[in-house]
Design a protein around this nucleic acid. Structure first.
Lengths: 198, 198
DNA sequence: TGTATAGTTGAGCAAGCACTCAATAATGGA
DNA sequence: TCCATTATTGAGTGCTTGCTCAACTATACA
């Protein structure tokens, strides 16, 4: 019994996520979140507890939707190399047209929180490790299918994670599609490059 | 005539730079800057005008000292490839031991300001372009000396800039030396793609 | 319908923020 | 020595922040 919620919690969380993604944590006052969510402060605090808790919930939603979808492109491809190409292709598209113009919520937040919030930092590191695992699996598949150059070992997965972080940063500087495409192509070219003609 | 300054402006700026570098712009209240600089608010405002102006001065100091020194390692090496190796080697060292544990002031600030300060964003983009130019020159030298694989074109410079941004992000997640070294090695291995040299 | 329960409202609070300014102190030149 | 000028001091300004709460509204069940 009692009055029922007049708003959809997940819908409100989605709005908060977009606001944090675009403006960062410190850059987003509660007032702005309330406006984006269409709620009063009291409702926000009743539903989420605190600004930080709302942010943590938004990060989890980001991981479960945006990141999960991206990683699924790696795992769901017919071959390892195609998976990597699909991942980077979509990344570039979203950085030119879509919400990834704002970079990546994880990357942005890692930069913002690394020096002051060990708990959140741990969450972000965990996410990077998951991405690396997916890259490593795709590289292993690609290697098994003979798609990689002999020089490309499993360490390449670590390098690709770093490269994606870098692209996330670059995306915020409003680059052209060409620049982003060049980065992705150069990375994959380094993995597939046929062995130097003796 | 009149009373003389009792503090060294450049020394104070160096202290402010370190604080901004470590904690970010929004993460650093004027009070913290005053403490780091050993000054009262009035003196800070008399000397620098505003928090933002102080930050801009700190960024310029960073570019003229920290970044300039790093880039000089590329240009000052006997060969193109050695220049790149020296650059990345020093980067890894500073990320493990030194102040680059805090990442890179430019990278951190690009993430923080991209969506709200076009003037600063332009400055950061300019800096990335300068880094790319140095990479491109080193790659051209390396190519002329036959140090690169046939597949490594001038686009590799753009990729390296992105990779460095990514390493700057990763540095903030307190990685081991091994992880950073792997990233740098994998990137250069993709350019040289020559099996030996273990 | 009445009542206990739970959600919504929005003015308002304490704390922290960037910044200011009148008072004070130190300097060079008259 | 005195004075005009400039630097330093630090309490204080108005504003924004994250957050609260008493009043109000809607609901389920008796």
């Amino acid at each position: 019994m009692g009055r029922l919620r007049t708003f959809d919690v997940d819908e409100a969380l989605a709005a908060a996520l977009e606001t944090f993604w675009q403006q960062g944590y410190d850059g987003t006052p509660i007032q702005a979140l309330c406006q984006a969510m269409g709620l009063q402060p009291g409702s926000v605090y009743a539903a989420f507890g605190s600004k930080r808790a709302l942010f943590v919930a938004a990060v989890h939603r980001y991981i479960d939707t945006v990141s999960a979808e991206a990683i699924e492109r790696i795992n769901g491809a017919p071959s390892g190399l195609e998976g990597l190409r699909a991942y980077f292709g979509h990344l570039v598209d979203a950085m030119v047209d879509g919400k990834r113009q704002w970079g990546c919520l994880i990357t942005n937040s890692l930069v913002e929180f690394a020096e002051r919030d060990p708990e959140l930092s741990g969450l972000f590191r965990l996410h990077l490790a998951r991405l690396e695992t997916s890259f490593a699996a795709a590289l292993a598949r690609a290697r098994a299918d003979g798609e990689l150059s002999p020089g490309a070992g499993p360490e390449a997965a670590t390098m690709l994670v770093a490269l994606v972080q870098g692209m996330n940063v670059m995306a915020k500087s409003k680059p052209g599609r060409r620049q982003l495409q060049v980065i992705a192509d150069a990375a994959l070219a380094g993995l597939t490059a046929s062995p130097p003609a003796a």
